[in-house]
Structures are given as C-alpha cells and as structure tokens.
Amino acid sequence: MITEEELAGTVGHSMPGGTARVEHYADWLLRDALGAPPGEPGLAHPTFAFLAAQGGVGLSLEEVFAVFGASSADGPMLGEWAVDFAEPLRLDVDYAVTCVVEAACRKTGARTGVFDLVTVRIELTGPDGRVHVTVRPTYVFPRRSAVRA
C-alpha cells in the first residue's frame, strides 16, 4: 500500500491525455441503453461526458488505478462524479482531453476501515481552444491491508 505521503504526492500528476469524439452511433447506443429519447440534433446525451472523459485520459482504468498503488482486485469504486458544461457536448467534434489529479486524501471509516479518496479533473477542450466540459470523478480505494489506528 502506498504511504499517505506518496498518495498526497500524486496531486498535480498529469495523465497522458488524448482526444475524444462522440460518434452519433455511440450516442444512439447509449440512449438505447438508457431508454432515452433522441436528443437535440448535434448534441450528445449529457452522460456521454463520462465516457468521453474516461476514454480520453490516455490510460486504461487499470493503469489509472496503478497511479494510486491500487488495482481492480482491490475493489475500487466510483464514489462521486461531477460534470460542468460550459458548452453542451457535441456529436462528431474532436475534443482535446487533459487529466490531472486534483485531490487525494486518506480517510478511516468506522465500518469501512482505511480508504483513499482521489479526485481527478478531466477537461475537454473544443476546436475553439476553450474548455467546454469539465468532469471530476472521485474514486474510492479501499486499503484493506492497512491497520486501523
């Protein structure tokens, strides 16, 4: 298990990043999975921000977990998720994606024991150079090997 100091040291760490593009057929598939009606022409379902952001980080989820000394075998969970749209997410537009660790802290719960909370900020920048969408997932990493204080 990484130390609390090592965990704190991940704040500011940048993931490789990449690009994201919401294809119209993928939006259709997500809407089908959700039972959602067709959206406004040219606009993606808001939940697609989740997929576009995650897909543009430049690492697999397993590789993201490894940055924090964890793996899927540890049972990481998505604790919170937030999105801010400066502009709606558009179909068939290329976005540049950047991702940086915004916060990381260790906590101890009476029932859950020791766990780490990590929030990353993922920004989708449009062709005009402005950030259109900001996504913040917060991961929960159980640290079952830790001894409770």
Binding site: L30, A33, L34, G35, A36, P37, G39, H45, P46, T47, F50, L51, M77, L78, G79, E80, W81, A82, V83, D84, F85, P88
Partner: peptide, 26 residues
C-alpha cells in the same frame, strides 16, 4: 454500471432543458 444509473437521472433532466452542471454521489 454507475454511468447508467446517473444516466437515468440525466435522461429525466433532458426533458426539462440542458444540463449545465451535475454532481452525483453513488
């Protein structure tokens, strides 16, 4: 999947207008 769970809520909201921001706890 968690994204489907929040997606049901987003779908509800689409009926009222454009989502500007959302914060969810699972």
């Amino acid at each position: 999947q968690g994204p489907l769970n929040l997606g049901y809520v987003h779908t509800l909201l689409e009926g009222y207008g454009q989502v500007v921001a959302s914060r969810f706890r699972f």
